[in-house]
């Protein structure tokens, strides 16, 4: 994956981030179509209990911050997006799925 244990650490609003391109067998809340894609953090909320742990009998710790990441629709779908190039999609991704791009 190339994502260190530090992924998600210190993320801030405005950061450009890449979503981990992983499909773990356990329950997770990252939609397939943003995996491996680049977006920008629009806001941060939480921390919340980690559903990846809670779904499998865990205590949900450590809590994770939740980043609302905005993607350009054309970056998600390429030519599959036939509407307006200015359109975007916002979705909530837990911080450990995100890696800051550049500095």
């Amino acid at each position: 994956m190339g994502i260190s244990a530090e992924a998600g650490h210190g993320l801030r609003v405005g950061d450009v981030v890449v979503v981990r391109n992983a499909t773990p067998a356990h329950h997770h809340r990252t939609p397939w179509f943003v995996k491996g894609k680049t977006g920008r953090i629009a806001s941060i909320s939480g921390p919340f209990l980690d559903p990846e742990s809670r779904a499998h009998g865990g205590d949900g710790l450590p809590k994770r911050r939740l980043c609302a990441v905005e993607f350009r629709q054309v970056d998600l779908w390429g030519e599959g997006y036939r509407e307006n190039n200015r359109d975007s999609l916002l979705t909530d991704i837990y911080e450990h799925w995100l890696e800051r791009l550049g500095q």
Binding site: R54, H56, G57
Partner: peptide, 11 residues
Amino acid sequence: LNVDELRRGIE
């Protein structure tokens, strides 16, 4: 039952 378990069971 928590909501994450509910979702996992559906999936």
